[in-house]
Amino acid sequence: MLVVDDEQPALDELGFLLRADDRVGEVITCRSATDGLRTLRETDVDAVFLDVQMPGLSGLELAEVLGRFKQPPPVVFVTAHEQHAVDAFDLHAVDYVLKPVRAERLAEAVRRVVSGSDRRPAPDDAQIPVERAGVTRFVDRGDITHVEAQGDYARLHTDGGESYLVRIPLSTLEEEWRPAGFWRIHRSLLVALAHVDEVRTDGGRCTVVVRGVELPVARRHTRELRDVLVRRARGLA
């Protein structure tokens, strides 16, 4: 495995955690993307763990270069910043892990590398607690097709046609769920990209069909939405 991070303590920690994993053999550490590339010129690796924000060549730029290799090594992004996780989607990274790194989370990333085939985003296993008539239930986030803002609250709509009100503002969900493939399409709407069936454009007006439900896409979100859907499609192809 190759680990690239410009911050020494972060590099040490990730190196240590990986070496502690039985499935992992040799771990090579590099403090810059350039050093990483030099290493890869001479050595083949099974996976590259990359920090995103680095001086000089960034982690994302390096991943792009790696993608052009004849045999691109699987890439796992390690980042303090969730925003970069969205770009990880585009570059077909196998996984992304947040800093500070939990050993269990890293183990999951190693599992995905080892199982090899994973180019698709992993099934979403997050569960959201919702309350109805005083009883708390858990909704699988993977079942949520879209979210609608209702003041300071948000209405979660699921695949099965149910809906639940949660006391979380849409903007918070937008930020927290972006790495899970939820995209803002409108001031009051968030959609799960995984559930998008179609994008329709009709004389400048754009809508998405999400499991049969047609939702409006605000003008300013249209282009971004189309881009991200195209990139996702390429990744899954």
Partner: peptide, 10 residues
């Protein structure tokens, strides 16, 4: 925040 906490964890 998260980079600092990460360094401290190390």
């Amino acid at each position: 925040v998260y980079n600092s906490l990460g360094a401290i964890a190390s």
